[in-house]
Every structure is written in structure tokens, then in C-alpha cells.
Design a protein around this nucleic acid. Structure first.
Lengths: 112, 112
DNA sequence: TTGACACATTCCGATATCGGAATACGATGA
DNA sequence: TCATCGTATTCCGATATCGGAATGTGTCAA
């Protein structure tokens, strides 16, 4: 047996630097493939392929207008990511809270 | 030329399912390598190797106690991730705000 | 000091992934 | 209808990455 992970999940999709650059480029709003190719300096096929991956995991969507394709972010699909990350921050805060409680108990103990 | 991305950044580190499982296992708190091996069912070398990667990007830290190693999360190092994700949510909200402004202007125009 | 234990590292083969080059495809304009 | 433009797809070689098996390393207990 060998590998197990695929490019078909959001976490993997944002693993690639160039794909993150493309997402960044789209923050400003809808853009043509050609525009992205210009903004970042990547080859057109490279951009198209990365857009395909991003598209498959739902992070971007595509709209045809004549012979060009306008890609845009699909912000709702960032939520799983955000929720995952926040979980850890949450765990951290919870632990800090428990620490606070503990310290307060200690302090109360001292004053008894 | 071929690849460019390495395993040496946080985004790549969380790209792997098993590494995410390990992180999840550590949410509860510090754990031994053996404990992780038991909790998830992965081989010990596999776990050790993933822990190494997670360690290199700073997501976990290690503490030696006798002949065992206790690994724990390093929540501060999740911040770059969170900030990156939140950026997109932010961009989304901003756009919604501008839309609101626009709609309000339209409405005011109607009433003049 | 020796053996067992907990873990890390190395070596390996299988496979996924990336980028480049060439090409295919569909829409448009002459 | 045909050439062109904008984009997608395919084919390819190079390389990164993963998991398994075997082995190395340090610590403890007897």
C-alpha cells in the first residue's frame, strides 16, 4: 500500500502555494483566467489546472461569458476550514479558562 | 522543472488526513506517541513521522519524560491558518456591507 | 551490564502531484 | 466559413510523499 490522500478535499487544495495565490487574487472579485495569468506570473495551463482543483472542492465557481470564464470565490466553502481551525483556538481558550478557574481557587484557598 | 511545494509549511502539514487525526487526538491534551498509536490505528513509525512534520512546522511540541515523549499542541502556531481563513470571510462580509450600502443608496434615491 | 521498552530513523517501492509543451475545444469576428 | 482568441485537456518526465519493514537509539529495570 502507499498513499491515501487525494487532491479532492479542501485542506489539500489550499496546501499548494500557487493555489493560495490564485485565491488571493480572487479576493478582489471575479476574474478572468487570463487576468489571473497576468497578475501572478504562471502559465495559462497551470492556472487552469489549479482552478480545476479549487473548483472541484468548491472554493471557487465559474461563470462563462462569451469565450472567457469568470472565476469567483465561494466563501461559504471556506467554513469547514474556519471551523476546523477555530476548534483549536477554542480548545486553547477552554484550557486557559480552566487555568483561570484553578488559579482563582488557589487564591481563594490562600485567603481562607 | 517540477514541483515547488514542500512539506515544510503549515498549510501543507494539515493537508494530510492522518496528521489532522493526530492533531485532533491531541486536543484533549498532551499524549504519548504510544497513546496516539493506540487511539488512532496507525503504525508507530507512521505516527512518529507525522509528528516530526507537525513538529517542524511548529503545530506540536515535544517533551521528554523518561523513555517516552509527550506531544502537545502549540495553539499559537494555528494563528497564521486562522488569519488566512478569516481573510476570506472578511472579504465576503466587506462585500456584503458594500452591497448593503448600495441598496440603501438606491432606496434613498427612490424616496427623493 | 543486559534485556526490554518507547520511540526515531532509514531504506524502499508505489503512487500522487507538479510544471511544461503541445494540442483540443468552443466562441467570436471578419 | 475560417482564423483567432481564451481556455481546458492531455501527455510527459521529474520529484515529493506516503506507508511498511527493518533497524537504530536512548532509557529504565533487574
Amino acid at each position: 500500500m502507499a498513499r491515501s490522500s487525494t487532491t479532492s478535499d479542501v485542506f489539500n487544495a489550499i496546501g499548494d502555494v500557487h493555489r493560495r495565490e490564485i485565491l488571493d487574487a480572487l479576493i478582489a472579485g471575479e476574474k478572468t483566467v487570463g487576468a489571473i495569468v497576468n497578475d501572478l506570473s504562471m502559465s495559462q495551463p497551470q492556472v487552469s489546472k489549479h482552478l480545476r482543483v479549487l473548483s472541484e472542492v468548491g472554493l471557487v465557481k465559474c461563470r462563462a461569458e462569451g469565450r472567457r470564464r469568470l472565476y469567483r470565490l465561494e466563501p461559504e466553502h471556506f467554513r469547514p476550514l474556519r471551523e476546523w481551525v477555530v476548534k483549536y483556538e477554542q480548545a486553547w481558550n477552554d484550557r486557559m479558562d480552566r487555568l483561570d478557574d484553578y488559579l482563582q481557587e488557589l487564591q481563594q484557598g490562600e485567603h481562607q
